[in-house]
Amino acid sequence: MAIPTSRTKTPAEISIDREKCTGCGLCVSVCKDFSIAIKEGKVEVHDHPLFGCIGCGHCMAICPSGAIDVSGRTFSSHDLFELPDRKDAATYEQLHILFQRRRSVREFREAPVDGDLIKKILDTARTAPMGLPPSDVNVLVLNSREKVRSFAEDFCCYLESMKWIVSGWFLLLMRPFWSKESHEMFKNFVRPLLHAYTENMQKGVNLVSYDAPLAMYFYGSPYADPADPIIAATYAMAAAEALGLSTCMIGGIHPFIQNGRKAKAFREKQGIRSASREGLFVLFGYPKVNYTKGIQRTFASTEEKQ
């Protein structure tokens, strides 16, 4: 038995070198699948795991003597690396300043984003935590203004055929079947957004992707934890900020391309592999404007349980 993903449906394999094993038990303490156990002073593979090794690699990463090797589910011991020393990590103050500086920017210079920077952004995004390994996050990379613009134009052509979903008769028909909040969002946000996208594109004004020099669409698979692509996109935005780029999350693309025959055709044309419960389109580029002030934000609520 194994937890399935789009990339693998079999468990990883755990190999133990009993000569190297010291029986310290660290590996057993971090394995939440109960795939390993201590027997006669040595670690061994357990007969009754919870799911079967998911390939998180915790046991292999924590073993001080290198006695454990995990392979399968797209990784092996060759993927291990030494963690950077904590003294080399960003301080809280540095991290907080980085996040304070990040703003949603939609005004970009025409300068392209170098391929080395794109690689660094993706390398950082790959470090994002995930619900279950291996990651089921996919990334569509549009690495030029021309590709970003072409995607937006195709998207607006697709939206032209979907305008019935914000028509008066459709909203009236659906009113008894969905929540008050859904009705308000469709009427006061989705409908004007769709018209703004399509009508401005007809005038040559791109309000979908603002002709950014780089865009990435993070999305999952039918198996993916819905949070995974959002977290990966967030890591990518933080990396871009550290590299001197500005970013903007675009939430008005993903929901429109998930359901129906036309949505599937659009995804296939763009090289998007599957529908996804959650996804995020992110713009990147060198800012044309310079902000000197931020806005203090708040949560809807913050309560400590007594």
Score class of each variant (00 low, 15 high):
Y210S: 08
P4C: 06
P49A: 03
F299M: 13
M249C: 11
G204Y: 05
F256E: 08
C24R: 05
T234H: 08
I231G: 00
G252V: 04
R73Y: 01
M1P: 06
L193Q: 12
D17G: 13
S276Y: 04
K42Y: 09
P226A: 09
F281S: 01
K203M: 13
I14N: 00
I118L: 08
W178V: 14
A233Q: 02
K262N: 15
V105Q: 03
D114I: 04
R7V: 06
G66P: 05
G252Q: 07
E93A: 15
P192H: 11
S276I: 03
R126H: 10
F34C: 05
W169K: 13
F299H: 12
M249A: 11
K203N: 12
L280E: 03
R7S: 15
V137Q: 02
G279L: 03
N290H: 14
V28I: 12
E13L: 12
I3S: 02
S35N: 12
I250V: 15
L171V: 09
I54L: 02
R109H: 11
F266M: 05
M1V: 12
K264A: 15
I253D: 06
T298L: 11
E93N: 13
A239W: 00
A265V: 06
C27D: 03
R175M: 08
T298Y: 15
A61S: 13
C59P: 05
